[in-house]
């Protein structure tokens, strides 16, 4: 049986996002051709031939309650064994592995790889048969989505000149889901501070704040800028994005609250610790957010005298 040649853990970020974002129900075939328990295997063989399919779920009259499945292999065995006239009920596979329609596509791909069946019946929350999914369905859906995706990610770094009273200033553009470059802005900030012989504790606090705010832009925003300003007695890091905005800032500051999807979580982010982390290391911390417009997070860390 063919498997889907996608590594569900280590493929490029775009693909991983895709297979978490797409649900089984977005990809499956909705119109399922079924047969009854008393249907002779011979008739199922004809159905397969006529419809060009390799597996037929056996259900009740409404096509909702699933009892088993008859696959091409079962038919071949029936022909060999001379029992092709028997009712489906007698020989259908009853040990069924099924998917739920709300599961991410990643689950379906893992299932195909793990269990080596050609198809999986899909049930809804009420355990009713709502579809069937094959590797062909998955490959078609992925091709369509990949064709849609053309934009290349890039990151530009701009360093504006210092203004009076400022010791240093850096500005970085950060793009959504750009994990290739994520962390470069905060590394640049850290490098600049290392050259100034800052004490390690303060350096670490600034680095954590910069990194969390940068990752926050990558993971949650539509993209924006991370700017760094250093004065004699303080450092200010500002993350400014173009959206989508935070509906409830207080909730967003709660540890463990996150709107990240499963893909982001699979990359080790989005566990709802970023903003609380950044706040914890900051001396001043403010969030100004408007839904539909954007968010500005400002973290200030005082420098020791």
């Amino acid at each position: 049986m063919s498997t889907i040649p996608i590594n569900t853990q280590e493929s490029p970020p775009f693909l991983l996002d895709l297979i978490y974002r797409l649900k089984v129900k977005d990809v499956m075939t909705h119109e399922v051709i079924t047969a009854r328990r008393e249907t002779p295997l011979r008739q199922i063989q004809y159905i397969m031939k006529e419809k060009g399919i390799t597996g037929v779920p056996i259900t009740d009259d409404e096509g909702k309650r699933l009892f088993g499945i008859v696959s091409m292999d079962d038919i071949i065995r029936a022909l060999d064994g001379g029992y092709i006239q028997d009712p489906a009920e007698r020989w259908m596979s009853r040990n069924l592995i099924v998917l739920e329609d709300d599961m991410p596509l990643q689950f379906a791909i893992s299932y195909l790889d793990k269990f080596r069946y050609g198809r999986f019946p899909v049930l809804n929350k009420d355990r009713e048969l709502v579809g069937i999914i094959t590797s062909r369905d998955i490959i078609i859906a992925l091709l369509v989505e990949v064709n849609k995706e053309v934009e290349k990610l890039e990151q530009r770094i701009v360093q504006p000149p210092s203004r009076p009273g400022e010791e240093a200033r850096l500005l970085y553009h950060v793009r959504k889901y750009d994990f290739e470059n994520a962390g470069k802005a905060s590394a640049g900030i850290k490098k600049l501070l290392l050259e100034r012989n800052l004490d390690p504790k303060t350096l670490r606090r600034i680095s954590v704040a910069a990194y969390e705010l940068e990752m926050n832009l990558v993971v949650h925003s539509e993209g924006g800028t991370l700017s760094f300003r250093m004065e004699k007695d303080r450092v200010e890091i500002e993350a400014k994005d173009r959206g989508p905005g935070i509906p409830d800032v207080e909730q967003a500051m709660e540890e463990g609250f996150s709107t990240a999807n499963e893909w982001i979580r699979s990359l080790g982010f989005g566990a709802g610790m970023g903003l609380p982390n950044a706040k914890r290391v900051s001396d001043e911390f403010t969030i100004d957010s408007r839904v539909g417009e954007g968010t500005t997070v400002r973290a200030v860390i005082y420098l020791p005298k």
């Binding site: 569900t8 853990q9 990643q106 689950f107 893992s110 979580r265 699979s266 080790g268 566990a271």
Partner: peptide, 19 residues
């Protein structure tokens, strides 16, 4: 802590330690 990793490697009858 990565669910894809847990799905790929954890065995049935296990206790999962995670954050």
């Amino acid at each position: 802590d990565l669910l894809s990793d847990v799905m790929a490697h954890a065995s049935s009858g296990s206790v999962l330690i995670t954050i």
